[in-house]
Design a protein around this nucleic acid. Structure first.
Lengths: 331, 331
DNA sequence: GTGAAAGCGCTAACAC
DNA sequence: GTGTTAGCGCTTTCAC
């Protein structure tokens, strides 16, 4: 049997209520009794039971985090931002991988609610009607991180993906390639659409007709970048600039190109997206769009704390600034 | 107010106990009543409260995971292995970053116990007396992942670091470099010691006296590898083979060397450790020691489930096999 | 400033 | 096969 608040009360000759007050820092306790209680807590090695506390107070100081894949260099950075702010506000996180699998996502959301989390941070590509339904009827606040639902009805933290992709493409165009190639993984998401729109917008702006062949759809992986590069160099008279939807794909492209004997950026320029740590861990270093993953996680968690505290927040859909960082993979 | 088991019982004209049985899949329920209960659960949208269940049953189906840094490419892979097996056994994980900070580690362990986790997976470098003390008096099972305590008294999952480092060094020696350089981050850990011992053992075996100057201590980072490379090329008549304690350092070394105009492996050979995804995301690809991070996490979690189920386990200190994978950064 | 007592929502004997 | 009834360890009124 474990030491309970009752044991402490008995040993200290006070009531459970008083022990509870001391443990919770309630000021309505005479210093002398506080001291006495603290001493017997120490003596007995009492450790509050957070589950019992959660049941009685209806607060668990725990938030759920649903993430596609924690081993991804992109999402793990987000998770770090979330946990740091969570810790700052005395919350712990229950972390679960969804693999972007719809069934699993829906099930996980439900599990989080069963576990009585005080809030939920959700990351994922496809936000179906069922997702929105489940999230909107959530018993606790929810915030999306690096994730957009079409209806813009759930609080979220993102960057302006369309504008970012537009700027990247435009940069490549101004560098002399009329119609850069766009290499991306496929997914049914608003983020995917917005990036693609930004890319097309830059083409339109310089009156270039979008060529479907120059949009190459692969996976969101390094290997996919490698393959894409092979395919590209076999195309005849292909554009000499490539915009990749993620840094990881970009790295694959750079190496794929180099493996074929080409030089980056002399022969072909490569532009990434995200500015993960990979961007500086490659030669040439990667020019890319800076998406502040850590900050997105941190701000999403901060936003969630505001909701959990019932503070009023003016802007529920936060758009963080992005930027372009020029390195050596472009001219 | 939320729907409780009591509401369901009333609406279905059965007792709470019966509802509980249905929810928990207890076979002692007549199919007809089960069906009736299930129907009203559906109708009312009843969702079991895991906190109440946890208090009553003294099981939370939650395990704590204390990790140095989830954004690390090494640890995030471990975490993925842990979560996958946890999910398989119906557990969720409470994940917390310790930053290898002793105070924080000790505090986190305590928090996990307060939250009544059913088990704990711990990762960290320095295992002090206090750590061991706290872990050994744990109210629930504990397993160390990629972590060794000097006393070997806490269950753990690792590889044979000494042997692995020995093999890597020996490989380099046999390739023609009498005394390879060893570049490592510094930490007060058994893993650090064992790797260093393996390195020294290989030197001894070929009767080479260990030269303190050829052990370069930096940080466990890419940038540190970059710096180390600069320092090395400035040494006069330096060895032409470098063994790095982690892939990330190795990548930094490779690029640092290349930035100075040297060729890998023609001018200098580089050997890594871990076989993170980085090892294939570099040119030349990295020869390295395969440490199965995902498996270590998975096996540690599996081990924990056995303890939690009070199964008897023969070997409490699991040593997983490692191997050497030869790629292009060595001759 | 402190105590008594009623829950929080569920599980787990135990009885029938 | 089903119901009754204690708790699980804490918070939170409400008195005093």
């Amino acid at each position: 049997m474990n030491i309970t608040i009752y044991d402490v009360a008995r040993e200290a000759n006070v009531s459970m209520a008083t022990v509870s007050r001391v443990v919770n820092g309630n000021p309505n306790v005479k210093p002398a009794t506080r001291k006495k209680v603290l001493a017997t807590i120490e003596r007995l090695g009492y450790r509050p039971n957070a589950v019992a506390r959660g049941l009685a107070s209806k607060k668990t100081t725990t938030v759920g985090v649903i993430i596609p894949d924690i081993s991804s260099i992109f999402f793990s950075e987000l998770a770090r931002g979330i946990d740091d702010i969570a810790t700052m506000y005395k919350y712990n996180i229950i972390l679960s991988n969804s693999d972007q699998n719809k069934e699993k996502e829906l099930r996980l959301i439900n599990t989080m609610f069963e576990k009585q989390v005080d809030g939920l941070i959700y990351m994922g590509a496809t936000i179906s009607e069922e997702h929105v339904q489940q999230l909107k009827t959530s018993p606790v606040p929810v915030a999306l991180a690096a994730t957009i639902d079409g209806s813009d009805t759930i609080p979220s933290v993102n960057i302006d993906y369309e504008q970012a992709a537009y700027e990247a493409t435009k940069y490549l165009i101004e560098n002399g390639t009329e119609h850069p190639i766009y290499v991306t993984g496929v997914e049914d998401s608003v983020v995917y659409e917005r990036k693609l729109n930004g890319y097309k917008k830059a083409l339109e702006e310089s009156n270039v007709t979008f060529n479907e062949n120059y949009k190459i759809e692969v996976d969101f992986s390094y290997e996919a970048g490698l393959d894409a590069a092979s395919k590209i160099v076999e195309m005849e008279d292909y554009p000499k600039a490539i915009f990749a939807a993620t840094d990881e794909i970009a790295l694959g492209i750079i190496h794929g190109l180099q493996d074929k004997g080409m030089n980056v950026p002399e022969d072909v320029e490569v532009f990434g997206f995200d500015n993960t740590r990979l961007a500086t861990m490659v030669r040439p270093t990667l020019t890319t769009v800076v998406q502040p993953m850590y900050d997105i996680g941190a701000v999403a968690m901060r936003l969630l704390t505001k909701f959990m505290n019932k503070e009023t927040v003016e802007e529920k859909n936060v758009v963080l600034p992005h930027q372009i960082v020029k390195r050596n993979s472009t001219k």
